[in-house]
């Protein structure tokens, strides 16, 4: 869906559901997921439908992910850090964990 204009800036290694993903300094969690081609970041607690970042400005709450064990964080507001562990959220089972 997105490509980087230039692969520059220091690389930052994070994991998404245990898989290694290379992000860049200045990425938010949501941007890093989009740049890595990760199609959705959670399923909804009501019907289990897949959702991906929608507004990237802190309004829609569709980019909710678990960051370093803390659930329901707004991925578009959190800058990536080296070694960060990101997990996608699975609807009803662990919504709002």
């Amino acid at each position: 869906m997105f490509k980087r204009l230039a692969e520059k800036g220091p690389a930052i290694a994070i994991t998404v559901d245990g898989r290694k993903v290379t992000a860049r300094v200045g990425d938010t969690v949501a941007a890093a997921l989009l740049a890595a081609g990760i199609d959705h970041c959670r399923t909804t607690p009501v019907t289990g439908a897949p959702r991906a970042p929608y507004c990237l400005m802190g309004v829609c709450f569709d980019c909710l992910v678990t960051v370093d064990g803390v659930g329901s964080r707004q991925g578009c507001l959190i800058p990536v850090r080296e070694g960060m562990k990101v997990e996608t959220q699975l609807g009803r089972r662990e919504a709002g964990r």
Partner: peptide, 14 residues
């Protein structure tokens, strides 16, 4: 006495 007991609600949990 007029009172207003507070409540809060969390997001959905298992």
């Amino acid at each position: 006495a007029v009172v207003a007991p507070m409540l809060m609600v969390t997001s959905r949990l298992p």
